[in-house]
Simulated assay, not measured.
Amino acid sequence: MNNRNMNWDTIKLFLALHREGSARAVANEHLLSPSTVTRRISELEDALDTKLFNRLPSGFKLTESGQELLLVALRMEADAYEIERKLLANSGIMEGAIRLTIPNHIIVKPLMESLSLFSREHSQVDLEIIPSYTPFDLNKGEADIALRIMLKGSSPPDELIGTKLVDVYSAVYCSKRYAQTQDLGNADESNWIGWDDESRYPDWVLSSSFPHLPIKHHINDPFMQLYAAKAHMGLVMMPCFMCDPEIDLVRIPPHEKWHRFDLWMLSHPDLRDTLRFREFRRFLREQFEENLGVWRGDNYCR
């Protein structure tokens, strides 16, 4: 067996091809050409004297031998990430990278101003901000720290360090023109902008002040919902931190809001004592405490 073909870099390509099913997708991720990816996999197959993938029109699918190697490769991956975290944990200096993953709609002005302040105070730390609605796997080193919106009362995974930063409140909003020109008591004249709800009257509609209005539009993205509301397409149930600063939107009724979600900060236990991560977590806790009103919807003043 050729040990050169069994190194960790080759195994990473094997795992990536299993997960993506496409040599082109793996090539883009690893800054290689698709032909290089397939050549490296073929070399691995030659070294093991077995076929690892079936090449199908739908993509690469593991053979039975590939499934056997997958078990070994996943253990190698877990060991590699543990080694990386242990090395990071020994770093006692305020320099290096922090990979922070955040849901796209959380990246609002108060948070960006806080991150800018941290960057100015710690110029040797490089912040990599990864906006994504897909939860990143901290156990696999896909990010160092994650901010995640979770349903009120939920708990983070047991294997991660979780800190609840703030209660997140939501309210009902529409454009000023919509509120002035549409009869919100008339289901033939007014409507909700919904998410991916199957019912025209889901629970969150029935529990609102407008349970008689149907969902007419389905837009499963917070920013698109916000712009749809500004374009007078209907009412939205949205986080206060997104809609309160929008002067074109009004909250109806203005005094009503709901604690529907919590914002959590998650990190891996192995990074608990690494100086830059420890200081960054402390900094975020303090910043969210200073800006509680933004996330709780206390700053609305129309």
Rank of each mutant, 00 (worst) to 15 (best):
R4M: 14
L13N: 14
F14I: 10
L17C: 14
R19A: 15
E20I: 00
E20F: 10
A23R: 12
A27E: 09
N28G: 12
H30R: 15
H30Q: 15
S35I: 13
T38F: 07
R39S: 08
I41D: 14
I41Y: 12
S42A: 13
E43C: 09
L48T: 02
D49L: 13
T50N: 07
K51N: 11
S58P: 06
K61I: 12
K61A: 15
S65C: 09
Q67V: 15
L70A: 11
M76A: 15
Y81I: 13
I83N: 15
L87R: 13
A89G: 09
N90L: 07
N90W: 05
S91M: 11
I93N: 15
E95K: 08
G96C: 05
R99I: 01
N104Y: 11
H105V: 07
H105F: 10
I107G: 06
I107M: 09
L111Q: 05
M112I: 09
S116A: 14
L117S: 06
L117D: 06
F118D: 03
E121R: 00
S123T: 01
Q124L: 04
D126N: 07
I130K: 04
S132W: 01
P135Q: 00
N139Y: 01
E142N: 03
I149D: 09
S155F: 07
P157Q: 01
T163G: 08
K164I: 14
C174D: 01
S175N: 05
Q180D: 14
T181Q: 14
Q182G: 00
G185T: 05
N186V: 03
A187N: 10
E189P: 05
N191P: 02
W192S: 06
R200F: 11
R200K: 14
S209V: 07
F210R: 05
P211V: 03
P214A: 14
P214W: 10
P214H: 09
K216I: 10
H217E: 15
P222T: 04
Q225I: 05
G234N: 07
V236S: 03
M237K: 06
P239R: 00
C240Y: 02
M242P: 03
R251Q: 03
R251T: 03
H255A: 04
E256S: 12
W258Q: 14
S267C: 02
D270V: 02
L271I: 08
R272M: 15
L275T: 04
F277S: 11
F280W: 02
F280N: 02
F280C: 03
R281K: 12
R281P: 06
R282C: 03
R285P: 01
E286H: 09
Q287R: 09
E290R: 09
L292W: 07
W295P: 01
N299P: 12
R302C: 08
